[in-house]
Simulated scan of single mutants.
Amino acid sequence: MEVQWTVRLFAGLAERLGGNEVRVSSAEGGMTAGKLKALLAERFPSHAGLIHASFVARNEVYAADDEPLESGDELALLPPVSGGAPENAGEDELASEDGRFILTYKPLDADRMLSQVIVPEHGASLVFVGTTREWTNGRRTVHLEYEAYAPMALKTMRQIDDEIAAKWPGTRCAIAHRLGTVPIGEASVVIAVSAPHRAGCYEASRYAIERLKQIVPIWKKEIREDGSEWIGEQQESWNPTAPAAE
């Protein structure tokens, strides 16, 4: 019996492979995430390098290459992240139920995110704001464009908060990321952290932004005066399933 999967594509992969999804068929049984990538690399040989550097997401969770795939799985092929539009572009904002994790087309509000983490027992709080810079290595950026696998992005933001709470007990984290076009000087990401003491607060804030860039399925396209480029595609060894660095 033959099984058919629809694989969603994002960022540079969607552009290179000619659409937002691709269909793959295989005999029932024996299909793995690694075999799926091999089939796609065979079908699109000129983009094999990027396909092999990408990760399959199975039901909104990163899948190792040896993980089996089953009929009915929701699949996506995610290129290396550069960690930024949800699939429902009609919504201006998507947020977790508690409001601590947000994807939005609207300008970010640092005070709003800070209010999500302030609690009476904490004596330290920090807000990290990442903005669009105009010049990088002598090349002028016009603006940035962000795209995300929205439901999985919200899940992995929550994962970061869980990891922080395990490493620094009691610490709270809130993350908001901009989608769509972000002009020069505007914020693309806001991370708010609060903790009982300042040392843990500094450490957790740094951990949050580095982990976001590693595991959250958000992609950044840099629109420059001399062309455009998806940032992250050059990461041949990207592995979002690897343990977080200590």
Rank of each mutant, 00 (worst) to 15 (best):
Gly18Leu: 10
Ser115Arg: 11
Leu126Glu: 00
Leu78Tyr: 13
Gly84Lys: 00
Ile118Gly: 00
Ala64Met: 02
Ser82Trp: 00
Gly90Asn: 08
Leu40Thr: 03
Val81Thr: 10
Gly138Asp: 01
His52Cys: 06
Glu87Pro: 03
His52Ile: 08
Asp65Pro: 01
Val81Trp: 15
Gly130Ser: 06
Phe55Gln: 02
Tyr62Thr: 13
Leu144Phe: 07
Leu50Gln: 02
Ala95Lys: 04
Pro107Ala: 00
Pro86Asp: 09
Glu87Lys: 06
Ala85Gln: 10
Gly90Tyr: 09
Ile118Tyr: 03
Arg58Leu: 15
Ser125Ala: 15
Val81Ala: 15
Gly90His: 04
Ile102Tyr: 00
Thr32Ile: 09
Val61Ile: 08
Gly123Asp: 12
Gly29Gln: 13
Ser54Ala: 14
Leu94Thr: 05
Gln4Ala: 03
Arg58Trp: 07
His122Gly: 14
Val127His: 06
Thr32Lys: 11
Lys106Pro: 09
Ala150Phe: 01
Ser54Ile: 04
Pro107His: 09
Pro86Glu: 09
Leu94Pro: 04
Ile118Phe: 05
Tyr62Pro: 14
Thr141Ser: 02
Glu60Tyr: 14
Glu67Trp: 02
Ile102Thr: 14
Arg133Thr: 15
Pro80Tyr: 14
Leu17Tyr: 05
Leu144Tyr: 06
Trp5Arg: 04
Val81Glu: 12
Pro45Gln: 06
Glu70Thr: 13
Leu77Lys: 03
Glu42Arg: 09
Ala41Asp: 12
Leu39Lys: 10
Arg112Gln: 08
Glu74Cys: 11
Arg16Trp: 15
Gln4Lys: 13
Ala64His: 07
Tyr149Glu: 01
Leu75Val: 06
Thr136Asn: 10
Val129Asn: 00
Leu75Asp: 13
Trp135Glu: 02
Arg8His: 13
Arg112Phe: 05
Phe10Val: 00
